[in-house]
Write a protein that binds this DNA or RNA. Structure first.
Length: 419
RNA sequence: GGGGGAAUGUCCCGAGCGGCAAAGGGGACGGACUGUAAAUCCGUUGGCGUACGCCUUCGCAGGUUCGAGUCCUGCUUCCCCCA
């Protein structure tokens, strides 16, 4: 990992120049492999939820660059490992997902990948599920063929394990075995798909290296590891959480508008970094945007939002989100693209408590919270601050277009319509 | 196997003479200031009700008590020491 290393391959150069590179097992060797011909690489994804969130986006972008530079990407679904159930966390009854649920999650997650990767053509992406091989493993053979290559002493020394033990968090045997399963995945993928590179977040380093080790002992070709930094904002917060919760990638969980807003609200200090990681703008263009200072940097944020949203939701959706945001924030107008809530006309005639409306609109998680929010001056009804959460909202509050504008804070707006 | 300690507000850390919706941080959210930024200051941070109020919370299950996070018994899990 010499800093003056000049990659010759398009892929490694993109990784290095754009800031995806955190650690690599053998950068020069990997670069040479890319120069020699197409490389197949994979990233593993959990399928415990029906969607991935922005935390996974860096690695998705890495796969995209991989394909874009003429190589073969494999997003691997962790259906097998999910079937075991993730025992992390303390005492919550671990929810074992049914096979059907896992399949549904996989299908849903695949939609996201279809936006970023091409599943046809010369360097078609494939999306295998590690259940295909993990569920067929036999305990004794497993111990004999794979288990003997692992040293518990060594496993205990891994950062992920060590911190867990130090923090006195329970770590079940199952979880301890994830490392082994993941290492085996790598070997299996190299066997099945000629995959020689595993990428992932920096927290995966130990697991990936275990896979390389295992591969060497089991006679796989030379395998490589490449990790990216974990995504945090400059102020140190883990990225991907907003008021509404996680920033999911599936459109049915987080709309293009909200997604656009998420990027628009990037901290100044992160803009350049994010432009490199989450857009495909040329570096000189990014360098130009990076120079914008003071309030002008907002222009760069809009570009970031436009580009990032276009990648996930398409250019049209990005433009719409951009226009809706411009209208709402810069011109004080509202468009139909803002989030909305339909309310029964009859109940509006009778009057609905403001707090109830705010809670129903998803701007607060309970009426009590909504009331407190109002008390603190955080609720706006048609742009007027409304501190009384018990105030009744009626049809009289509708504007000429038949819409009531409800806002929590300055950024979260919901349009209420009567139906 | 023996001995000692621990588990608290469902984000985390953490105080808690038997009257407790439970100190204090961090985080998060809101307000002011700004540029839909950061920093700073202020406020909020169990649910339901218009309200005196009602309900649900301190590892789990019982018990003592008018009253239990707090005392007793059993259980679970974790940490430390001795074997």
């Amino acid at each position: 990992m010499t800093s003056d290393f000049k990659p010759r391959s398009d892929f490694v150069r993109a990784m290095v120049e754009r800031g995806y590179m955190h650690q690599c097992s053998d950068l020069e060797g990997l670069d040479a492999a890319f120069v020699a011909g197409p490389v197949t690489a994979y990233v593993g994804y959990d399928c415990t939820a029906s969607s991935l969130h922005v935390g996974s986006l860096i690695s998705i972008m890495m796969l995209r660059w991989l394909q874009k530079t003429g190589n073969n990407p494999i997003p691997l679904m962790g259906g097998g490992t999910t079937r075991v159930g993730d025992p992390s966390g303390k005492d919550e009854t671990r929810k074992l997902l049914s096979v059907e649920a896992i399949e549904a999650n996989k299908a849903s997650i695949r939609q996201v990948f279809e936006n970023f990767l091409d599943f046809g053509g010369a360097h078609a992406a494939v999306m295998p599920d590690n259940a295909e091989w993990l569920t067929k493993l036999n305990w004794i053979e497993m111990l004999r063929d794979i288990g003997r290559h692992f040293s518990v002493n060594r496993m205990l020394s891994f950062e992920s394990v060590k911190t867990r033990l130090e923090r006195e968090q329970e770590m079940s045997f199952i979880e301890f075995n994830y490392m082994i399963l993941q290492a085996y995945d790598f070997v299996e993928l190299s066997r099945r798909h000629g995959c020689t590179l595993q990428m992932g977040g920096s927290d995966q380093w130990g697991n990936i290296v275990s896979g390389i080790d295992l591969g060497r002992r089991m006679g796989s070709p030379q395998l490589y590891a490449l990790t990216c930094p974990l995504l945090t904002t400059s102020s140190g917060a883990k990225m991907g959480k907003t008021a509404a919760g996680a920033v999911w990638l599936n459109a049915d969980l987080v709309s293009a508008y909200d997604y656009w807003q998420f990027w628009r609200n990037t901290e100044d200090a992160d803009v350049a970094k994010f432009l490199r990681l989450f857009t495909e703008l040329p570096l000189d263009e990014i360098a130009r945007l990076e120079k914008l200072a003071g309030a002008e940097i907002n222009e760069a944020k809009k570009v970031l939002a436009d580009e990032a949203t276009a990648l996930l939701h398409g250019r049209d959706a990005a433009n719409q989100a951009s226009a809706a945001s411009k209208a709402a924030f810069e011109e004080g107008r509202m468009t139909g693209d803002l989030p909305s809530l339909d309310v029964d006309r009859a109940s509006l005639e009778a009057g609905v408590q403001l707090a109830a409306l705010v809670a129903d609109a998803g701007l607060a998680s309970s009426r009590g919270e909504a009331r407190r929010l109002a008390q603190g001056g955080g609720v706006r009804l048609n742009d007027r601050q409304e501190t009384d959460g018990q105030r009744l909202v009626t049809l009289a509050d509708m504007d000429a277009d038949g819409v009531i504008k409800l806002a929590a804070g300055k950024k979260k707006i919901v349009l209420v319509r009567a139906v």
